[in-house]
C-alpha cells in the first residue's frame, strides 16, 4: 500500500532528519574529541572538524584500560542480566494477568514500588545482602537451634559453611539486578491487550496455561521482547555503580568501569581524547545490538495472531 501523499512524506522525512541530527550531534563531538591529540583537545574554541588520531587513541585507550578482559566480563554479566530479567518478568506478568490468587494486586504493587528506588539509593543494604547472602539463613539456623544440632553431630560449624559470599563473582554482579518491575509492568500492559477470545479458544482446545504461555503469548510478545532486550542489554552494559562497589579485583570489573577510570579527574591531565575514543568502543556492543534488534520490528511478526 503505497501512499501518495508527498507533503506528509516530506514533512516526516524532515522531522526524522532533524531528529536524527539533534540526537547525533553530541556523538559527533565525542568523535571529534576522540580524534585529537592531548594538546589539541585542550584548545578553546573547540574544533568542529575531527583530527586524525582516532585509531591511535583507541589503541592507547584499549591497552591502558586492559579492555579485553573487561569486555568479556561486561558481556557475560549483561547477557546474564538480560536473560534473567526477561525470564522473571515474563513469568511474573503472566501470573499477575492471568491468575486470580490472594494478594495478587498487592504483589503487583510491591513489585512496582520496588521500581521506585534505583540501585544507587539502596546500594549499601544490597551490598550487605549479597556479600552475606546466607546471613538470614544463618540467623534462622541459630534461632531454631539447628546450628547447635549440626555442630554437635557432625563437628562442622554450620556458621562457616553458610558463608556465601558473592563478592567479586559473576553471580554477584548479575543477581541483584535481575528483578525488574518495569519489564513486568510492560508485559502486564501487553498481556492485557491480548483478546480474551484467544485464551478461551486455547482452553477449549485443551491447552493448559503453560502451553498457552509458550505457544501463544510468547510469539505475540516478540516485538516487545525485542524492544526490551535492547533496553535491558544497554541497562546491564552501562551499569556503573554496582560493579564499582562490588568488585575489588581488577580482573572482574566491567567495561564501563574501565571507561570511568579513563575519564580525567581534577588533579590529572585532561586526556579527553583517550576517554572519548574509549567511549566509542565501549559503546560498540550496545550499538550493534540496536542495529541487529531493530530489524526484528520490521519483520511484521506482530501482525500474525491478531
Amino acid at each position: 500500500m503505497i501512499e501518495r501523499n508527498l507533503g506528509l512524506t516530506i514533512f516526516c522525512h524532515a522531522v526524522l532528519l532533524l531528529g536524527a541530527a539533534a540526537v547525533c550531534l553530541p556523538l559527533y563531538f565525542a568523535f571529534v574529541a576522540g580524534s585529537l591529540t592531548l594538546q589539541e583537545v585542550q584548545q578553546t574554541p573547540f574544533p568542529w572538524v575531527p583530527g586524525t588520531h582516532f585509531l591511535d587513541n583507541i589503541a592507547t585507550a584499549w591497552n591502558q584500560g586492559n579492555f579485553s578482559r573487561l569486555y568479556i566480563n561486561s558481556l557475560i554479566v549483561t547477557v546474564g542480566i538480560v536473560v534473567g530479567k526477561l525470564t522473571i518478568s515474563l513469568i511474573a506478568a503472566f501470573a499477575i494477568t492471568y491468575f486470580r490468587f490472594p494478594f495478587r494486586m498487592t504483589a503487583f504493587w510491591l513489585i512496582f514500588v520496588s521500581l521506585m528506588l534505583p540501585v544507587e539509593v539502596r546500594i549499601i543494604p544490597t551490598y550487605e545482602a549479597v556479600a552475606d547472602a546466607a546471613g538470614p539463613l544463618r540467623w534462622f539456623a541459630d534461632i531454631t537451634g539447628i546450628s547447635w544440632l549440626v555442630g554437635s553431630v557432625t563437628g562442622y560449624q554450620l556458621e562457616a559453611a553458610l558463608q556465601w559470599n558473592m563478592v567479586n563473582t559473576y553471580s554477584g554482579l548479575i543477581l541483584p539486578l535481575i528483578a525488574s518491575a518495569s519489564a513486568t509492568f510492560l508485559f502486564r500492559q501487553f498481556f492485557l491487550t491480548v483478546p480474551e477470545e484467544l485464551c478461551e479458544a486455547a482452553r477449549l482446545d485443551g491447552a493448559g496455561p503453560v502451553k498457552f504461555f509458550l505457544d501463544i503469548l510468547l510469539p505475540l510478545s516478540r516485538a516487545n521482547i525485542a524492544a526490551l532486550s535492547i533496553i535491558l542489554f544497554i541497562y546491564g552494559w552501562n551499569q556503573y555503580l554496582w560493579p564499582l562497589l562490588f568488585t575489588t579485583d581488577a580482573e572482574m570489573q566491567t567495561a564501563i568501569l574501565g571507561l570511568k577510570h579513563l575519564v580525567p579527574v581534577s588533579d590529572a591531565e585532561p586526556a579527553w581524547n583517550i576517554a572519548m575514543s574509549a567511549a566509542f568502543f565501549v559503546m560498540l556492543p550496545p550499538a550493534v545490538i540496536i542495529l541487529l534488534m531493530q530489524r526484528w520490528f520490521t519483520k511484521g511478526l506482530v501482525d500474525s495472531g491478531k
Partner: peptide
C-alpha cells in the same frame, strides 16, 4: 584498587566495612 573518586572510595569502604570486606 582505584575505587572512583574520594566520595565513591569512602562509600565503597563503608559498604565493605559493614560486611567485613574492607581493605
Amino acid at each position: 584498587v582505584h575505587k572512583g573518586n574520594y566520595e565513591e572510595n569512602m562509600a565503597a569502604m563503608v559498604a565493605a566495612y559493614r560486611v567485613g570486606q574492607q581493605p
